[in-house]
Simulated assay, not measured.
Amino acid sequence: MAVEVTGVGQREAWLAKRFPSVERLDDGLWSVPVVFPGNPMRYTLSYVLTQGDECLVIDPGFDSDEGWAQLVAGLRRAGVGAGEVTCIVATHFHTDHLGMARRLAKASGAPIGLGAAEQRHLSVYDDAEQEVELDRERMRLWGVPEGRIEEAAMSVGALEHLRDLADADFRLSSGQPVPFGSPHGEVRVVETPGHTPGHLCLELPGREIFFSGDHLLPRITPNVSLELRGDPNPVSSYLDSLALVERSNHYEVLPAHEYRFRGLGVRARELRTATEERSLQVLEAASVQRDPSVHSVARDISWSRGFGSLGGLQFRLALSETAAHLQHLAVQGLVGGVRGLPTLAPQVPMLR
């Protein structure tokens, strides 16, 4: 069975590199694209759900004046003003999901919800300069050439930007209803750590609709990174989360990027297989190197655009993803001696 594309117009826009339209998807449910400037993902698909006098916004998007105008216009299409939003939920703590939450909450007074386990792990520090130096030292341990340390490490400006993101007014756990609708309970929470430590998805069981955030995307594998103060074994968490959502393929998946599709279980299994194959690729690269480092392994595995072409954030993400897979392998006792990885108790090997 293959994934069925349901967001045909969204897919056409994605492939043509055009900005998609606001769409009415179901009774009281709208898809609103919000620009993500300077990023290859280009925009976030925010979702607006209305019921009576209540309005829930899921992943309001990156904070910019242009994006704010797009979100307000989308809300207007849904029949509500920004001041009438009653609840905001971000699937995770990334700027293209949580960024606009503070502005929307200020306009409406709506509370902001995040996953129970979501951490501000990139914004918990006392001294930004000291935090940057810690990150640079980690890049050195990962074998990054000295001339590219500054490019790979976090900057003071980036850290301060993350610190400005909104805090949660309430936290959500698996099986818990989102405080929206009358009676509350239409929107249910599924905790799906991996892409971030406390990533969550939302579902409308009665309508067989699944808001997947970045956990499940139709075309690409979400980045799963090893980050300072983050999940010490995010690949393992991601694999467990994928297994958790391998349910009915009748569910329509509403992701935060690209386009809608049907086939929740099919896509979850595809992504689980792709993640396991990536770990095997990392294992093969590490096994033939005398003294493997995160950088040397990343250099020797395949990347869609080629490792040599990666710069800035994409370079960092490639390193962090490679480190996450090396950590997953190290915990299973399949690789050892790679510097800069957290120390965890070994587990029984799971790769076949």
Rank of each mutant, 00 (worst) to 15 (best):
F210T: 02
G312W: 09
L326N: 06
R188E: 13
S287T: 14
Q289R: 11
V35C: 11
P33E: 08
P232C: 06
L165G: 08
E12F: 07
D240R: 14
P218M: 02
V245F: 06
R11H: 11
P20V: 04
A323W: 00
P222S: 05
Y251M: 14
L283P: 07
V124K: 15
G311P: 09
S173F: 13
A168C: 02
T6E: 09
E203P: 07
L98A: 00
V89R: 08
A324F: 07
D65S: 03
I58M: 03
G340R: 01
H92S: 08
L134E: 15
A274R: 13
H215Q: 14
P193A: 10
G336Q: 09
I58N: 00
D26M: 02
H121Y: 04
A110T: 13
Q281R: 15
T86I: 04
R305K: 11
W30A: 04
W68V: 02
F210S: 08
V331I: 12
V57K: 01
Y43L: 01
P234W: 07
T192I: 13
V72D: 13
L334P: 04
D135F: 10
R260E: 13
L75V: 03
G230N: 06
S287N: 14
E258H: 11
Q289A: 13
I209F: 07
T192Q: 07
A82S: 14
E137G: 10
K17G: 05
G265N: 08
P255L: 04
Q314N: 12
G181V: 04
A274Q: 13
V85G: 00
D53A: 05
L313I: 14
R262E: 11
T322Q: 04
L242V: 05
